[in-house]
């Protein structure tokens, strides 16, 4: 099941050189920090979030739409999310509910 889109809540990203950027809070409310890294991959965000090499780092994704295809447990590279925080341009708050493969096949065969 999916949740309703939460109300806008502000968040701040502050860099150690004094740069401050304001945006919208996503995920859990709180404060986190770490080395600010960016990843240019257009797809594969779940593998990136769960890559243990990113432990303790803030992950900024350069691809502007993140979350558009949801997540699947088989795409986890570790038992949990490893990044310390996430920075994105547009975040897909709600993802479509996945349909069973059999239903997808029926839809495909009846609509082509």
């Amino acid at each position: 099941m999916t949740s309703a889109i939460p109300d806008f809540k502000p968040a701040i990203l502050a860099l150690s050189d004094g740069t401050v950027v304001k945006g919208r809070a996503i995920g859990k409310t709180g404060t986190t920090g770490g080395e600010l890294c960016f990843n240019t991959s257009m797809t594969g965000y779940q593998e990136i979030f769960t890559d243990p090499s990113y432990y303790g780092q803030l992950m900024m994704m350069t691809y502007p739409h993140i979350g558009n295809y949801g997540t699947m447990s088989r795409d986890d590279e570790a038992r949990k999310v490893m990044i310390a925080g996430l920075i994105v341009r547009r975040f897909r708050m709600i993802t479509a509910i996945p349909l069973p493969m059999a239903v997808c096949r029926i839809i495909y065969l009846t609509t082509i």
Binding site: K22, K28, G30, M60, G85, L86
Partner: peptide
């Protein structure tokens, strides 16, 4: 996953 994040920022400019 207890992940804190921020969206609607100019990621290209930050990069």
């Amino acid at each position: 996953n207890n992940l804190i994040g921020i969206s609607d920022v100019d990621t290209r400019k930050l990069v």
